[in-house]
Design a protein around this nucleic acid. Structure first.
Lengths: 216, 216, 216, 216
DNA sequence: TATGAATGAGGGTTCATTCAT
DNA sequence: CATGAATGAACCCTCATTCAT
């Protein structure tokens, strides 16, 4: 049958996938268009034909990765439903870790995000507005529900950073963790376990702050 | 006693400093030997003459940076003295953050370490054994002193990762934090404030674990 | 009688016009097929479909430009009518300058000719026989009528070159003239003024030669 | 003996000569760095090492050509000595033609100038100030000495353009002249003959203007 | 011991052209 | 007839490294 999928879509998609892999492995500058095209099995001029430049390809890969990750996992992790704030926090952490560490397709979303955060390119601003700021705000809402309204915005921000820092560390420091603590793996159930720890660690801290706040 | 080698030593040192700056700013692959030599005001062939290759220069820079940082800050942060474990934890966090974020000379130690953690080169293994493993173990000792001996090693490791993750996030995600939370700065007193938050956040969590442990 | 070919004719014509513009602006090698097709608003494959190659398009553009210019201006400038030779010379110069410098549609005939003269392509020979040789001969006839039959053909040729050189300089050196003498413009009345000068300058020279010839 | 001529000078000079040839033959855009390096028998990276870009090489070639031509022929053609204005005009024309058409080394000065005039690059402004404006002014002085002070500056400018146009035509239209008038050559004595014609043609015209001016 | 010129591999990009649709 | 995606050669330039001095 072969629905009327245009031929170009195929090449474009191949480039997006190959680009995602190579950019994730090597970073923007170190990645080469030639390697991407080799892996995508397309002509080297295709990048400029479909994306007009390496930089644009990179931006498109980030966009594509974001969409893929968004559709693979619930759209606004932890913010849905009428669960207790504690459960929403746990859900958020599990979901965020899954996005970062999940090894399925596209395996490189987390790595791309991590690279972009540490070594930003011109595409960072778009990423921040599209993906990161909503994440921060969503998490801040959950934290506020736990610690109570009397806690200052600055304090809540610090807590958000503490939570994200704990999660992202498993992505950023993965090579180091692999060497120092080889017993920590990244399968689904390992991610579950990691999420459980971070949720417990964080909840204890937030409850402490909540009590402090109420005392004042 | 070979007093007459200051000139070549000088060139070496200039290359180490310039290399530290440029590698920290641009990363290993993106940094260019020309730029390093330009900034060091030495001949372009000096890198290969003194270090035989760009890669060896990079390894030497990491080693040099580690030594400089070790002499600038207490050698084993938080492990010294006979303070209470809680104060030692706070000291450790403050000290680690300072190393990571301090902007004085050499400003690039933290950035180099952060880069190496996220995007390891061949030099990572040496770094791990020289700097990172001792750090992990030192911190694990403090955590154990707080939560008590009955807590499992795996749990302690997780806590160590949670602490380091909170700290490193301020380095890794600095560009993002600067955009989302421009009120967070990196002066000495800001580092102090960040350390205070992380210490409080962590202590609350650890005390919770400690109580849980005792219940069991 | 084949009334139904307007569409392909339209594409051809659009390519001829766009090609004329772009070739005139950029020259044969520097002009790109993409730019021409973009400006003609036709598919990029059209050039090879209608003209089989960029080179053939260029030759067709030259041919087309010649025809357009021939129909826009009297066919054999200065040779018609039974005017005095002096008036015919003035007419010739004005007409030739108009062809070269006229900015209306197609504005690019003069530029194409000028480019082809300075930097000939494979199409030059055709141009010479179709356009340039008749021009030279026509002008030589006028000159001969002024200086008299006793003047040698070689001398007449030199005079023809002197006249054409004066005219073409305004085309060839236009960028330089614009910088050195910004008061010289290229509107209709400016062309008239330029033609008047060249005609006066030339007539004085030719009359001198004429007198010299008669003395001998 | 081999005086201490640096080795680099050799490569630089080779590139200047090869660049002059290729740029003259093909024009700036069409000329390739590869071809230039091939002809100069140097590595392809040498252009960027010695001149940092193709564009800079081109500018250097123009500069070099100008200096070579200046030293090969009297510096300010026609302006020297206390000759009569008529002889100075003849000298100027002969000298200018020689620069343009001389086939010795570097044969390409005239072609480069001609190309730059017709199809200016970014280097045109420098050329104008260094070479073309002085030429115009020098020639304008001679013309003024012949036609008298009462003639307007605009008229003198027109005469200068008429003279330069006659001369440059032999360069610009050389391919066409070669086809239409194969009896015209470019040897030294032919240049002499061409100069004689242009000088005679021009002098007749200028004397006419001079008389007109005096009548008024 | 130190220099700066020279090297060649490989970088991203652009081009006229071709081909399946 | 017409399209737009695909091609591969060639473009200029940058790089870490080497070599003669």
């Amino acid at each position: 049958m072969d629905m009327d999928k245009p031929l170009s879509e195929l090449t474009r998609n191949r480039l997006l996938h190959a680009g995602g892999e190579v950019f994730a492995e090597r970073g923007f500058r170190t990645a080469t268009v030639r390697e991407i095209c080799r892996r995508a099995k397309v002509n080297i001029a295709s990048v400029n034909y479909h994306f007009s430049s390496k930089e644009e390809l990179y931006a498109s890969v980030l966009e594509y990765a974001y969409q893929q990750a968004s559709s693979a996992f619930p759209n606004d992790p932890g913010a849905t439903g009428e669960d207790t704030p504690e459960r929403r926090l746990h859900n958020f952490i599990r979901n965020f870790l899954s996005r970062l560490l999940y090894e399925g397709r596209p395996a490189w979303y987390g790595m791309l995000m991590a690279r972009e955060i540490v070594e930003p390119t011109g595409a960072l601003d778009r990423i921040i507005e599209r993906a990161i700021r909503p994440l921060h705000e969503s998490l801040a809402g959950i934290v506020r529900d736990i610690v109570g309204e009397q806690t200052s915005g600055a304090k809540i921000t610090r807590c958000v950073l503490s939570i994200l820092g704990q999660c992202l560390f498993y992505r950023h420091a993965r090579p180091v963790i692999a060497r120092l603590h080889p017993s920590i793996h990244y399968e689904d159930k390992d991610i579950e376990r990691t999420a459980a720890h971070i949720a417990e660690f964080t909840l204890a801290a937030l409850r402490h702050l909540s009590k402090q706040g109420r005392k004042r």
